[in-house]
Write a protein that binds this DNA or RNA. Structure first.
Lengths: 255, 255
DNA sequence: CGAGCCAATTTATCTGGATTAATTGGATAG
DNA sequence: CTATCCAATTAATCCAGATAAATTGGCTCG
């Protein structure tokens, strides 16, 4: 048998552009907010065609490194480092399409505890205020069913604020990812039953207690409160899923 | 100020193709291993140009849903669901470029424990054998320094096998992701010091004890063994990073 | 001066074809 | 019969330009 001729993979021109931009980011030659050269200039720079530059910018956009706008003064700008695009990309991952609440909570129960304790150490007054505001919004007497629903979803935002405050980017990413995943489960899979809105009161109560523990810098209290909060939330989630499943069975009894 | 005219985003043709393929996956009209129509047929089907089909297939490839091969009989094939592409994409995420061992282990310490306990419940004899083989390879007396290094890296494979055995895809993904991340730290950042290879012996010892606990289906033992194993591994990792940093300081004293 | 229209700028998407590369099966030479 | 080469198939990459859409700033008209 003849040896395979060591496939020399042609390096894509668009990848060269992507790598150059990334290098300029890690070497801090460019900072968030800086504008990249526009299409025409990049074409001149790399001596390539429009499509090639476009492919490079598209790749950078998908990775959440730049955002582009049309119009005069538009173009591609470096965006702040953020964990959001990674979370978005992962949530679209088809392999996760059959996850249920129990599976998400198996992770969330351990992640959120770590997260809360870590975030506590570096919470700024701005972040503490954001947490207070979130609680105020969620605790308000709702004036409509849609607001009620918004409040339920906003409860997750409390945990997102903590994630953003966390000094460990990996933990921050995991926290946000799980929150977003849960939000998808609630919103898209209709795991929301207005009659069970009172569950929200329990969540808000936990959030209030956590706030106090944060202000006291009481890691032990944060740990046990969050653990209890998650345990509670899991029970509600699983119960809701059961009701929703039941409802579907009633809706479509003849499969 | 005039209201913005509710930007109607033109639907991309390539996205339509991508969505169609994804739909055919979730509705199980196509299964892993099935071959997609080739470029020309897709062009005829969607009445579009080469570039458009190409963009769609590229997107599907990046998401790890299809793989393509050239040549007769080649083309785009649906691949088995796997968490690998997601892990690969995430590892390239620039936001994680400054992670250190301690940050990875903060998560790993809790994830691996959950993972091991969950995987234990569904370990097949094939997987148990794979674990045994892995231990045998790692415990062998190395005949060269490169083999020594390979053994050190193979120790992570023990944990990857557990991840693949785990019934919770989210947990499986996290486990593999952290293992791969750690492997990057060891391989790319050269956090490997041959003189410290004896750390591997401790790892193998833990793996052996875990095997016994798996066979006994002793969840309590698995939990405490894995917790101890991770705690130990973290100490070694942090120590190694210190030595490597020291080495770099000596190599490049005049910055 | 102000509201609204228009033109310039710039990206977004698609096109259709050119060239290159990888793979495979069959043809051919020894 | 075997090893080697060649031709057909198919994707990979790139190109150059056409058309559409979004944004902004200036211009016009009342």
């Amino acid at each position: 048998m003849t040896l395979k001729p060591a496939r020399r993979k042609r390096t894509k021109l668009s990848d060269v552009i992507v790598e150059d931009v990334k290098r300029s980011i890690v070497t801090e030659q460019m900072k968030p907010g800086d504008r990249l050269p526009n299409e025409k200039d990049l074409i001149d720079l790399y001596q390539c065609s429009k499509g090639t530059v476009r492919e490079a910018l598209k790749a950078l956009e998908v990775e959440g490194l730049v955002c582009t706008r049309t119009g005069p003064g538009g173009g591609a700008y470096l965006v702040e480092a953020s964990v959001e695009p990674a979370s978005r990309a992962l949530r679209n991952f088809l392999h996760f399409r059959h996850l249920d609440g129990a599976q998400v909570y198996q992770l969330r129960k351990v992640i959120e505890v770590e997260l809360a304790v870590t975030a506590m150490a570096s919470l700024t007054t701005v972040q503490l205020q954001a947490l207070e505001d979130n609680i105020a919004f969620c605790a308000k007497i709702p004036t409509s069913e849609s607001e009620q629903r918004d409040q339920r979803i906003a409860e997750l935002e409390f945990h997102n604020i903590l994630a953003d405050a966390c000094s460990n980017p990996l933990l921050a990413f995991m926290g946000r990812f799980l929150n977003d995943l849960l939000r998808d489960l609630v919103v898209l899979k209709k795991a929301y039953v207005p009659e069970r809105h009172q569950f929200g009161d329990a969540n808000v109560a936990y959030h209030r207690q956590l706030m106090e523990a944060f202000r006291r810098q009481d890691a032990g209290a944060v740990r046990s409160l969050m653990a209890e909060h998650m345990q509670d939330a899991e029970s509600h989630m699983v119960a809701l899923e059961g009701e929703v499943a039941q409802k579907f069975l009633l809706d479509f009894p003849h499969d």
